[in-house]
Design a protein around this nucleic acid. Structure first.
Lengths: 237, 237
DNA sequence: ACTAGTCTTTAGTTGTGCCTAAAAGACGAC
DNA sequence: GTCGTCTTTTAGGCACAACTAAAGACTAGT
């Protein structure tokens, strides 16, 4: 009973295919972060990775070597990393766990959009495949998490959203919010207060020139927001 | 962002009071196991602990020394351990997490009673206080988990069940199942098939003498079960 | 009361993932 | 094209929690 199944105990390969549960939490976290950084910028530098993971650069180097040895990333010395096909598969599995959890928590508890990401972060490594499947079924195989990010399906296919930044709307144009940032809790509380959330209608009232702020209408109220913020919000018209 | 908050990073004491989140998962697991063994048998021997935790005896000794240094157990050399007041508090916090999770999963997903324990075991360490509170509220501050075990309340008070073993009923007597074992998945699947679950009515039809099997009626069907199994099932008449 | 056997503890290693300090590589400025 | 700066990697350690092997302490059996 109570057999401890804890960090990094009895990991390895099963059969031929490396699988999520075979890898330590740390390895998984790095893969997820590399996936995210890669989507923004191609090859990922060790220093960027270290910074995002909140560790010292040598720690990131060490992990990168480990990931390369596992065949999960391509590492060119002094030139950063890129996920291999295997590495990407694992990152997507983790992303699926994460986003399903976000939606599950948001729907079954009174958990604000601002807190959902952090809670899912804590739980994602502990989610079994069994539970993943049950959550997926209970939620009706959802395609997007509460922030509007796509959830990879059971075969890990992911639909990359084709929304446009809110800042790209023309004055007077209406659209539906599709996606908001997921990590910044304070920002999310602010967006919640504005009702600027996925699925909600929004209208761009006017845009000040020269990169100035935008005035939007959401929930019947006009508010001025920075263009920089508007860039981070995706809408669908 | 994504600041890693992983096993045993930045633990210690906060203020004066040791708190669940300050302790590594391993420490928590040991405390929970000691709590459970202690309830059955007073002082807990190192070897028993090692066996239950699935580790070699020297590992248990090492952990016991650590727990003693943290003031969470009393350790008399060669004589086993007992939880201190602090140690018991932490064990109860963890137990609360565990049992709330069991109930939450059982109620919100199609998760069988047999699987609930194992899943909660995986998730309990990752449960934040915030989420604990929300789950408690969403479930209406429940007092018992799906196996019929009591859930410590927010102040960690716990009601020790006062049911009697099913084996103690007199022939012809009816009662309600109150509590079943929680760890043995196979057994729980069997009990589920018999409808011998917490809250369900049961009648002891007759008992063979000399420690022989008992015949019970549940869900309209008569079944013979061993006395040993009947000892593990608590009922309330 | 002694000794045989068992249980517990000590001693010493291992694997993970982090750290700091120092060396090596890459790259832009002159 | 070389020099200085900045980034990356190597080298060496530490904490945690597990392990095996061996020594020490209780307990029962004679």
């Amino acid at each position: 009973m109570a057999a401890r199944e804890n960090p990094a105990s009895s990991r390895g390969k099963r059969g031929g295919k490396t699988v999520l549960a075979d890898l330590s939490d740390a390895v998984q976290d790095y893969l997820r972060e590399i996936y995210k950084l890669q989507a923004e910028s191609g090859r990922v530098k060790t220093s960027t990775l270290a910074q995002q993971m909140g560790v010292a650069p040598p720690s990131a180097t060490a992990m990168v070597k480990k990931l390369a040895a596992l065949g999960l990333v391509d590492h060119e010395l002094y030139r950063g990393v890129r996920l291999t096909r295997d590495g990407e598969r694992i990152a997507l599995e983790l992303l699926r766990h994460h986003r399903l959890l976000e939606l599950y928590l948001a729907q079954t508890l009174e958990l604000g959009l601002d807190a959902v990401h952090a809670e899912a972060d804590r739980l994602e490594h502990a989610l079994s495949e069994t539970l993943e499947t049950l959550i997926d079924e209970a939620l009706g195989s959802p395609t997007h998490d509460p922030h509007g990010d796509p959830i990879p399906d059971a075969k890990l296919r992911i639909v990359h959203a084709k929304g446009t930044p809110l800042s790209r709307l023309a004055a007077g144009e209406r659209a539906t919010v599709q996606k908001v940032p997921d990590r910044d809790a304070e920002l999310l509380r602010y967006l919640t207060s504005l009702d600027l959330l996925p699925g909600r209608p929004v209208e761009l009232v006017r845009a000040e020139p020269l990169g100035g702020p935008l005035t939007i209408r959401a929930n019947g109220r006009e508010t001025a927001i920075s263009r920089q913020l508007a860039d981070q919000i995706q809408v669908l018209s």
